[in-house]
Amino acid sequence: MAAFLLGRLASRLVLAVLAASLAYALAAAALDPRAGFEGRAPRPPEAVVDARLTALNLNDRTPLADRYLVWAEGVVHGDFGHTSDGEAVNAELWRRLGVSFRLLFLGAVLGSVLGVLLGAYAAVRRGRTADRLISLGSYLLLAVPVFVLAVLLQIAASRANRAMGVQAFVWVGEATPGASDGVIGGLADRARHLLLPTVTIALTQLGLYCRYQRAMMLDVLHADFVRTARAKGLRRRSALLRHGLRVALTPVTTYFVYAFGLLLLGGIHTEKIFGWHGAGEWLVDSVARGDVNVVAAIVCVAVCGVVLAGLISDVLQGVLDPRVRAAE
């Protein structure tokens, strides 16, 4: 098991380093920070712009390879450079990652776990009413993009607020500015702000996992080993739970990476719509500003996230399926 993981880790690390470098190269080649400086009024003299850009390692007149080396050296030491305003990327990056994490974590966990359970249940009840309802629901959820779902939830919440006459639902930002009712009140306020975004994220992930888990579970419904388990005297439901579910879970772990990519994407929209100042929002704004170092840093973190997701999926697979462990 340890050797198996080590092997996967090594090959994924190599991929991560290459992907991060590629990300920097793309950002540096595609974005145009110079335009931002030249667009200022009054327009600074060219020499000043050049000097400023060079100081920030953003000068497009320096060869890309040289800029890359400077950037890479910084990253190796844990420093992602400076924004085009001259601020350190690191501090802001960690703060915003925290925001994004608080936004995504709960929704992702809830969505995937519930999705897996619902999908497995639907498969066991195949063809019955419960299955039809769950399947229909997952189809609808998958057809509604995050940015539509979020807006729909907001509209529904504001209707509910109006109907009840109190601000039961709040959704702009992470917390109500200025409101401080001590620690407990603060936490409650945060939880209220978290509700709608979490539901948004959870629902999108739920649809995804539910459909996939249902399909995988259907595959084992008639598997020979489930029949053997019943021949031993297990009832259909316990045979499916004790023998089928675990086998049907393994392929879902490989799906984890794909779902994680969609989570990141959903995160950008959710942050924008709910006004959370997270990394996704920063990325979009920085792309518009041509802020190479910020963009590269965020893509780097995302690459690491994907690699980590892959690693988690490896661990889960190794734990769930002895055949995977043996394959290495």
Partner: peptide, 26 residues
């Protein structure tokens, strides 16, 4: 199914053809 499952594996049992797929792999 409940009544039969008390008999299956106890009073009557079956040996299947392809043991690789008939045994739970995990």
């Amino acid at each position: 199914d409940a009544e039969l499952s008390r008999l299956r594996g106890n009073d009557l049992s079956m040996i299947f053809q392809d043991a690789l797929s008939a045994l739970t792999p995990v």
